[in-house]
């Protein structure tokens, strides 16, 4: 398991999530655990608690996981997904208040440098005045 903070990208659109993940990979390669999800349970635009839980699992790191979301439902469903995990894990996950693409790239770059979850969160959230 990586010792670097993992990044999860949650968008209403699988294409947006995948594209943002590509941009993260270009910046940090495979050194940072990364997972993305997008789309409702039928594949339309939306978000899916089950997919978010699976993405958190894929990107899991002992240092924790930072989640980037796009619009309201992505955040609400991410909060729901976190609550459904064990407290041990839930306490090591943060939803970042930052724009999805820029936030994911900056958070991953910060994570790549070995920063803590709190530092990753702070750096990405500096994007949102």
């Amino acid at each position: 398991m990586s010792d670097k903070v993992g990044i999860v990208i949650v968008s209403h659109s699988a294409k947006v999530a995948e594209g943002a993940a590509d941009m993260v990979r270009q910046m940090v390669g495979s050194d940072v655990p990364l997972a993305w999800c997008g789309g409702d349970p039928d594949g339309g635009l939306g978000t899916d608690v089950g997919k978010i839980m699976a993405a958190i699992d894929d990107a899991w790191s002992a240092a924790g996981v930072a989640i980037l979301t796009d619009l309201g439902g992505a955040e609400t469903n991410s909060e729901m997904a976190i609550e459904m995990l064990d407290d041990d894990r839930a306490n090591k996950i943060a939803i970042l208040n930052a724009p999805l693409v820029e936030g994911a790239v900056i958070a991953a770059t910060e994570a790549w440098g070995g920063s803590s979850l709190e530092e990753v969160k702070q750096t990405a959230e500096e994007l949102s005045p």
Binding site: D40, V49, G50, G73, M80
Partner: peptide
């Protein structure tokens, strides 16, 4: 509802 709705109304009605 939480698992199947796929929008913010899933967690809201689920809750």
């Amino acid at each position: 509802l939480v698992m199947k709705v796929g929008g913010a109304s899933g967690p809201l009605y689920g809750t």
